[in-house]
Amino acid sequence: MVRIAFPTEKGGLEDNIYPRFGRAPTFTIIDIEKKQIKNVKIVENPGYRASGGAGVKAVQLLANEGVEIVMGPTPGPNAYFALNNAGIKHYPVQGLNVKEAVEAFLREDY
């Protein structure tokens, strides 16, 4: 099983990937097992409401949720460092919705 997160607005498979990482209102977290979507979960991003340090707060959430991969826009330098530290991989994607991104992930296997 692999757990992937996507920055989103309202969240869900049909939602578009949000153009900014730390300031996304929600993250859509998806479990993939045997090339199938197993589980879809939408969590609120504490970074969205933060005055500062949004990116790091977002990564903290992802780390707490046990996310292994995040697909979306490039995070800022602090968030990038935090992602590395937490061992979460980042795959850059933009302009897709979540479902399309999952399909791309499954197809290309990155």
Partner: peptide
Amino acid sequence: CVKICDTGALFMAGKAYPIVFPRLCS
């Protein structure tokens, strides 16, 4: 400490020790 920090300057990956982001710290 990570929960209390308002600026996102403290970060903890899993059960590792917290790390500090000096630039974010107020």
